[in-house]
Each structure stands twice: as C-alpha cells, then as structure tokens.
Design a protein around this nucleic acid. Sequence first.
DNA 1: GTGAAAGCGCTAACAA
DNA 2: TTGTTAGCGCTTTCAC
Lengths: 338, 338
Amino acid sequence: MATLADVAKRAGVSVGVVSRLLNGDETLRARDETKQRVRAAAAELGYTPNYAARALRKARVGVIGLAVHDASNPVYSEIIAGAQAEAAKAGYALMLSDVNALATDDEMFKRFVSGGAIDGLLLQRAGTAADSLVSKIASGQVPTVLLNDHTRGPIGSVAVDDYTAAHLAVSHLIELGHESVGLLHVDGPRSRAARRRKGWADALAAAGLDAPASRVFRGGHTADEGYRGMRELLAAPEPPTAVFAANVLAAVGALSAAHDMGVRVPDDVSLVGLHDVFVADFLQPRLTVVKLPLFELGARAVTLLLSQLNNDPARHESITAPAPVMVLRQSSTPPPSH
Amino acid sequence: MATLADVAKRAGVSVGVVSRLLNGDETLRARDETKQRVRAAAAELGYTPNYAARALRKARVGVIGLAVHDASNPVYSEIIAGAQAEAAKAGYALMLSDVNALATDDEMFKRFVSGGAIDGLLLQRAGTAADSLVSKIASGQVPTVLLNDHTRGPIGSVAVDDYTAAHLAVSHLIELGHESVGLLHVDGPRSRAARRRKGWADALAAAGLDAPASRVFRGGHTADEGYRGMRELLAAPEPPTAVFAANVLAAVGALSAAHDMGVRVPDDVSLVGLHDVFVADFLQPRLTVVKLPLFELGARAVTLLLSQLNNDPARHESITAPAPVMVLRQSSTPPPSH
DNA sequence: GTGAAAGCGCTAACAA
DNA sequence: TTGTTAGCGCTTTCAC
C-alpha cells in the first residue's frame, strides 16, 4: 500500500503538503502546478489513507456503533438503513452489535465502547437490567444516543410519535364501529410502552369508551409472544371485537393465533399493527397497520450523535414529521354485529 | 483513557514489560511479584488497549467486513449470526456493509476495502455486473471469501448443499403423489441457481417424471417477485399441482398470490420453500420448508477467511453436515385427485 | 528479568 | 510557498 511518504517522494514535495492538499486544507497556499503534480502522484500510486493511522492521530475513528437487540427484526432494519444513510453522508461507517452480547461479553464491551473502536454509540434499549447497565457505562465512555426512547441527562435520545400512532390506530377502529378494543402491549422502556398504551386509552376515552386493564395483554415484540398474547386475549370471558397490536411482529403472531383458534380476521375480530414492514402485505388477510417514520428515526439519531461529538449538549428530539399514517389493508372492518 | 505508559509508570516498570505481559507473551521472564504489580495497576486504571494504535502497529485491525445485498433479509441474518459468533471467538469484530453501496460509492469502497478498515471480506454475490466488479477488485486488496458460492482462483468460497435441498423438497412432493412440480427459481450466481434447478430436475427424472422448462418460472428472492412468479405459474395452461420455491421470501409471495387468485394451498396446490425463517411458521397455512445450515455457513466462512489471513491458500468448501432437512408443516399434501 | 528505542502512517504546528 | 518535526499508543528487537 502506498503511503503519504511515497506520494510525497514521487511528487517531489514533503508529506505535509500532500496531507494538507489531499484533506482540502483551505489555508494551504500552493502553486497550481504543484497541486497537479501531487494529485497525479497520488492517483498513479492508488493512494488510500490508512485509517488506523489517521484514527490514532486524530483520536477519532470515523465509526459509530449501533447496538440493537435483534438486527434481523425488520422493524430495526429500517432504522438501521436510515442511520446508515446519514452516517455515510458524514463519512462515518456504521458498526452493528448485539446489545446482549455487549452486556454479557465483557471483552466485547471493552473492545467496542472503550478502546476507541467507535466514536459514538446508538443504543436500542429494551428495559432489561442489562440495558440500563450498558447505557450507563457506555455513556461515560462515548457519546450515546438512545433510539426511540426518552431520557434526560448526559445521554441524548430521539423518539417517534408512538402516542399518536396508537391513538390513530384505535381511533380508526372506533370509527369502524368497534366499542371494545383490546391491546397487545409491548414491554420495553417504560416510556415507550406507556406512550402506546396511553394512545390506546385516550382514543377510547375520547369516544366515551372503556379502556380497562382487563383488555390489555402482553404481546411482546416477537411473533411468538404475540401468538401467546392473542390466545390469552381471545380466551378471555368477553373478548374484544378489535385488537391493536403495539408491534408488527406481535400482530403476525396474533393473526396466526386467531386462525388456529378458528377466529376469523377481520370477520370476527379486527386487527391493526404498529410499523409497516414488508411481511404485513403478504399475510392473509393483509395487515392494516400504522406506519411511523423509522428511517428518519435512524437518520436523526446519527445527526444528533454527530452534534454531540462536536460537544453540543445531549438533548432529546421528537420526530413529528412525517406524521404517523394509517396503511389500510384487509385486517380491519366494522364489527360483526354492525 | 489510561495508556500503556500510565500503567507502566504506576507499576514502576517499562512499557515493554506491560505490553508483553498483558498480551500473554510466553517468552517474558518476569518475577511473579512484578506481574502482580502490573496487573493491579492495569486494573486500577481501567486500562483498555487502544485499537487504532494496535492496528497501526500490527497492520491488522481485527475486523472482518461482511457485504450482503439486504441485511434485513431473514435468510441473511442467520448467516450473519453465524459469522458473528465465529468472528467473536477469534477476537474479530464484524462490519456490515451493503454490496450495492460498495459498488456504487467509490469513497465508501476505498474506505472499506482499501485503507485497512478491514482485514478480510465476506461477500455475498448476486450475479449482477457490480458484483463481479466488487469481488474482482476486492480480492486484489484483501483476502476474500464468497458466501454460498463457488469459485476457483485466489478467492475462497463456501457453499451449502443447494442441490440436495432442492432434490429433497421435490422428492417429498413426489412421494406425496405429485406428478407435476413447478419451480419458482432464483437468479443469482449461475452455479447457485443452477444447483437448485438441477436438484428439482433430477428428483423428477429419478421418478420418471418430466421436468420441462415450461414449468420453470422466475421467482427471485423477494416476496414481490415470488408473487409475480406464482401468478404467472398459476395462469399457465396446465398449472402444476405442486410448486417448489427456491427461496422462502418468494414462497411467502407465492402463497399470497395463490390466495389472491382463489387457489387454495395446499388443497389445490402444494408449496414448499427453501430456507427456514421464522415467518414460515406464522403464515396460513404454515409453510413446509427445507432447512439448510445457514448459521454454519456463516461460521465456516469466517474460519476459512481467518485461515487465509494466515496465508493459507484460498479454497472452496462445501458444508455437508448438518445435512438439509425437511421441515414438514401444512403447505404440502397429496394432490387433489388422490 | 527489565529497560530503551525504533517506527507503524498520519496530522498539525512551526520553520524556513 | 513548502519543508521539518513531534508525537498519537502500541509492539518488538536488542541491549543490559
């Protein structure tokens, strides 16, 4: 690999000039002819800066870490895509990691957050003890921003409007004529789960309807958990005529559970999920869903993190535009008795 | 951040000793008492090695790149998980990247494969021109191994047994009594697609059945493409009574297409997919599938790459164990007329 | 048994 | 307008 010194020698100048020129240093006063010569030499040698050396010198590596619980979860992949795009714009690379691995494997944690392997960290919490540990420790080492979460103090955070999304979904169901709407709710950071539940409750209340705890079932954020939650819900004494699943994967499982119990969707019970992922459009029936700007969430998170890298204070951001939208498909219709 | 020098000072020794001790240098002859002192100092200061410095010095960064087409594709995520696990064992980190971004964005390409940002590259091709470009260039810069692909020359590769998997799926259908089995085939590197098609054809031939080109439709590897392919297949003059989809996502789309066309699965047509991903178990009907050792694929790929990093020659590996297995679910039954 | 020192490739401050 | 130089933190060879 060609080094700066190689280029300098070939161009007959010193390394300082080459470095400054190639990095676009404005204050460099050099003859045009010299610039040409240097550029030509660099091109001929196929020069590429060595990032390890640069990182060592500048104490900044140009990579931002992204720790999630399950990179294969389609919900996360849109966030990741957004983060990726924004990071690339700023010349940063993204490095994925698993939150649990980070929490469990001490070696990995040190390598990832200490040791200068990343300049900043994007973190997806999920309410477990390990999570708070990670976020606590990590924030002391590297600038951190939490994804779809809310926090004060030295850690930044950015969130989408879960409350409005839930409100929207439930209002849609109410407009269709439903009077009893169950909730398959997620665990996770209190605030996130709570916002979705409040959206559900408020929408019901606004229509003068009940939002009793007896209609709330644990849906989790996997299809398996959603399956179990829906079974419980449908086995309840007076099952609701509609269900809002606070997570798509839970909705996928819920659909499957209804089918297995001989309950037809949407004829017997309507179902709407949160987050629009491709699979929603390939289920039978196709899943009605509310779509949140997940791509933007990822993008804004890196913007915020980048500003923290420049010593701006950590802050919280809410993404209000684009607003949540209903994606009407086949799983929601008026209730049976209408 | 505490540096080696800090630790050395605190322990009252020189940096050389600290470095050798902490790295487990066998040839270091030091008094036990000294070792204790050094270890204590390191612990007290919370010393973590700086990876940029180490990388610069050793000309090796400890990260291996993994370039795929769509990190959110559940099929890839199992491969990724396998690679992750194996890399972690060897103290390597994994850095994901998008193949297309790499092919398009020159800046990114240089940063990723030149510039020493990665020590080796795991690459998922898909038959496009961009791919061969990438693999060609990349292999000149860093050791490379292709995922589920086959190649000779300076690039390594590792593949699962697509042929047997396809053969297994089609044989299963034949045993159920089907005599006409359609194929939703994938594009991608010739060898991979060809192996699956040959498995289909050979299984049919072994039973004295026809495998005409008129029963082969393009299924691609997304649900959308599978949807389109299945529509065409079902609209054909004499549609088959069973279909093998050479990719799960295509199978997901195919199921949806059948439903939209009023064709019942499995009553009117049986369907089996390739690769067992979670969603297969949550569809209606649950999808019968053949499972290939994808996790092992990822793991073996990094093992191979690591050996190439130690100057072993590039070679090709086939993963034969665990063997492909049928996962029987609800989408395959005997043909209607039986 | 342990210390000293060179140097990986780069940036930035200072000289000339 | 361009050259020189001091390190960033680490590993490794060689000397004592």
